[in-house]
């Protein structure tokens, strides 16, 4: 199974995960400060900043794009409940 490393900058911890894992599946377990609301791509609460490896996350769906726009997301911001880890990257709470 292909693996990728995701680093949570706020707690300085890196996790090796199977490719395709969503950030939401681990960020709370390890205590990163990314906060969730609806958990289903509606509220925009789980906005995170991708500080490195921006291209190593799955592309936002049309719906995620819309929620990002509604919440005035910056260029390198994504929803942690949606983004899947495809390669090495670094994230932190937005």
């Amino acid at each position: 199974m292909a693996k990728a490393k995701v680093t949570f900058q706020d707690i300085d911890l890196t996790v090796s995960v199977p490719v395709g894992t969503r950030v939401i599946e681990l960020s709370e377990k390890i205590g990163s400060g990314i906060i969730y609301g609806c958990r289903e791509c509606d509220c925009g609460t789980c906005m995170m900043e991708v500080t490195d490896g921006w291209n190593n996350l799955s592309n936002p769906t049309v719906l995620e794009d819309k929620v990002l726009k509604d919440n005035m997301a910056g260029r390198h911001q994504r929803l942690a409940c949606q983004a899947q880890i495809l390669g090495d990257c670094t994230v932190k709470p937005a």
Binding site: L13, T14, V15
Partner: peptide
């Protein structure tokens, strides 16, 4: 310790399976 930012992780790498 977490509250005052004393970080126990310091660049640690763990496996998802360990969680």
């Amino acid at each position: 310790g977490i509250l005052v930012g004393k970080n126990q992780n310091r660049g640690k790498i763990i496996e998802m399976a360990e969680l």
